[in-house]
Amino acid sequence: MTKLALGPGFPEPSEGLPYRPCVGIMLINRDGMVWIGSRDDGGSSSNYEFSWQMPQGGIDKGESPEQAARRELYEETSVRSVTLLEEAPEWFAYDYPEEVVRKSRRGKHRGQAQRWLAYRFEGENEEINILEPPEGHKAEFGAWRWEHADRLASLIVPFKRPVYERVVDAFSHLTA
């Protein structure tokens, strides 16, 4: 398998499973509010108590984090009207709980290492279409809303909270 060119600072565990290289996107509107979506587990609903999250996804071979972020944002929300504001200064990683590794991740990765990027949403809310994603992509969210940045960590699954706290801290000056 060819390794991705992830740049300096990508966390490489000394033992055990590797991290899956991913991006996360903080989409900020003109009022400083952040886009969040409720995960869709089929039927436009979620089986998780903490189902809200920002867009995120894997980095494909040959992609830079910025290219992956724009692609993932478009695939998950239909949004293209954005301006890059900033990239977080480092990779933020989290480990999956053991039951997640066993059930849904097929034991390939210990968790995700994410490169986070903040974008200004330049379009209108009508551009956002999560129920019928472009180019035949499967809907990943069943609902969405604009939220205050300081509430984000309380809405995400607990094992991702430390990363969300770091993301909010890194980009808080953009949401004020």
Rank of each mutant, 00 (worst) to 15 (best):
P18F: 04
W116L: 13
M54N: 13
S104K: 06
T2Q: 10
A93H: 03
I28Y: 01
V168Q: 01
A143C: 11
T2K: 09
H148C: 13
S44R: 15
F171Q: 05
F10V: 04
W35F: 15
P97C: 12
L73R: 03
P158I: 05
R106A: 02
R145Q: 15
G136N: 05
E99Q: 13
S38H: 14
W144M: 12
P158K: 07
S14W: 12
A153Q: 10
D60S: 04
P21E: 04
R80V: 15
M26D: 04
E140S: 14
A118I: 04
S81H: 12
V101K: 10
P8Y: 13
F141G: 05
G16N: 08
Y119M: 02
H173W: 10
K138F: 06
A170Y: 01
V101L: 09
G7K: 06
S51E: 12
L6Q: 00
E98F: 03
K61E: 08
P8E: 15
Q56I: 13
R166V: 08
F50I: 00
I130F: 13
F92V: 00
W116Y: 15
H173L: 05
P13C: 08
Y48N: 11
G107C: 01
Y119T: 03
F121R: 01
I128N: 11
L73V: 07
R30C: 00
D40S: 15
G9L: 14
L85Y: 02
R70P: 01
I130S: 09
A5M: 04
D60L: 07
L17N: 04
D41S: 03
E12T: 14
V163M: 07
W144K: 11
M54I: 14
G16M: 07
F171E: 03
R106T: 00
I130T: 13
V100W: 13
I59A: 00
F92A: 09
Y119L: 04
S46D: 09
R71F: 02
R120C: 00
L84K: 10
A139E: 05
S81I: 13
E140G: 15
P21F: 06
P11E: 10
R151F: 06
Y19L: 00
G62F: 02
Q112P: 03
G123M: 12
P89K: 12
A113I: 05
